[in-house]
Design a protein around this nucleic acid. Structure first.
Lengths: 177, 177
DNA sequence: TATTGTTATACTCTATAACTATA
DNA sequence: TATAGTTATAGAGTATAACAATA
C-alpha cells in the first residue's frame, strides 16, 4: 500500500457553499458549533486540525495577493531564500524547504526563464551552481516581500500585535526541535 | 494559466539530509539561522510559513501513528465528524472539511467497504443519505481519537499545557472569522 | 430551477529510479 | 563511493463538467 501524502491535508478553499438544512441527528452537547452547523468541537481541540485550517486561511489570501507577481508560496520561498542567501545551491533550498530535488528543477528553470534568477558556477564545487537574483528578480522579490509583510498583518487582524508575536513564537516551538 | 493549488505548500518530510558544506555567500546579519545553515529569519516572521511548518510537523507524526488504523488525516476527520454528528450527509462533510464532492465519494466508498460506516436513507430528503458509524467503526474511531489526543500532547511537549491552549485559541482566531 | 450523490476526466503535486558529471 | 543537478515517469491529490434522481 502506498504511503498517504501529506498534501491532502491542505486544500484551497473555494466560495462558501450554502449549507443544507439537514441538521445533525444528535449534536454533542457542550461545545460551540461551527458555521456549518456540525459539531466540530473535538477536532478544534487538535493542534494539527487548527494549524491546518489557519495555514489554509493564510495561504488562500497569499495565493490571491501573490497572483499579480506570478508567484506561488513555494516560488516566493525560493526567491526569498535566494535573496537572503545569494549563492545558495539547489540542494540547500531542497533541504530547507523540504522539496525533492527533481521537483525543484522545474521551478528553478521557470524562474530562470522569467529572468528572475541567474545561475553562476559555484566557486568551489563544479557540480553545483550558485543561485542569485537578477536585478529584475531583486525588484520583484522586494515587492513580493512587502506584499507578504502587509498580508501578515491583514490576515491576523483579529489578533493584537502581541498575540501575533506569541502565535509565531509558539508555532516555531512546535516545529523547531 | 491554471491556478496554483494550495497543496504544494505542505509536504511529507523525509529523512533528514546532510547539508552540503556550501555556505551562503553573505548571510543576513542579526537573525538566528536554521539548522540548514541558511538565513531563514525573514520567512520565520511569516504566519503562513510558521503555520505550514508546524502543521507539517504535527501531520508527520499523525501519519505515522494513524498508519496502524489505516487512516489518513482526512479519513480521521471524516470518521470523527460522523461519530460526533450521526446522520450527517456527504454534502455537510464536504462543506466542513472543504472537500469537493467528487473527491469525497471514493473516501466514503472505501470506509463503507471496510465496514466502518453505514449509509442509511435520509429521513426527510430521499436524495441524501445519512452517514453513521458501524459498531466496528465506533470502536476504531474511539481508538483513533485516543491516539490523536495522546499525539496532541506528544507533539507539543516543548510547550506547557497553558501554551498549547493559547496556541490553539490563537489559531482558531485566525481561521474563524 | 436547484441540490445530492455520482462518474469521468484533466490537471497539479509528490515521489522514486536512474543517469552525468564531479568530488 | 558519494553528491549535485537532471530526466523520465509513476502515483497521489485536486479540480471542473455533466448526469440521474429528487427537492
Amino acid at each position: 500500500m502506498p504511503e498517504p501524502s501529506v498534501a491532502n491535508t491542505l486544500r484551497r478553499p473555494r466560495a462558501p457553499r450554502k449549507t443544507a438544512g439537514t441538521a445533525p441527528a444528535s449534536p454533542s452537547a457542550g461545545g460551540p458549533e461551527a458555521s456549518s452547523g456540525l459539531d466540530t468541537s473535538y477536532l478544534e481541540t487538535l493542534l494539527g486540525y487548527n494549524a491546518r485550517r489557519a495555514a489554509l486561511a493564510v495561504i488562500t489570501v497569499f495565493l490571491r495577493r501573490m497572483a499579480p507577481f506570478g508567484l506561488r508560496p513555494v516560488d516566493f520561498s525560493v526567491l526569498t531564500l535566494i535573496a537572503h542567501n545569494p549563492g545558495v545551491t539547489s540542494r540547500q533550498l531542497c533541504a530547507e524547504l523540504d522539496i525533492l530535488p527533481p521537483n525543484l528543477v522545474g521551478m528553478i528553470k521557470n524562474l530562470d526563464k522569467r529572468g528572475l534568477i541567474e545561475r553562476k558556477p559555484h566557486p568551489s564545487d563544479r557540480r553545483a551552481q550558485g543561485l542569485h537574483l537578477s536585478a529584475e528578480g531583486k525588484q520583484l522579490q522586494k515587492q513580493a516581500q512587502l506584499t507578504a509583510t502587509r498580508l501578515e498583518h491583514d490576515v491576523s487582524d483579529t489578533l493584537t500585535p502581541a498575540e501575533l508575536d506569541t502565535l509565531n513564537a509558539l508555532l516555531r516551538k512546535v516545529y523547531q526541535r
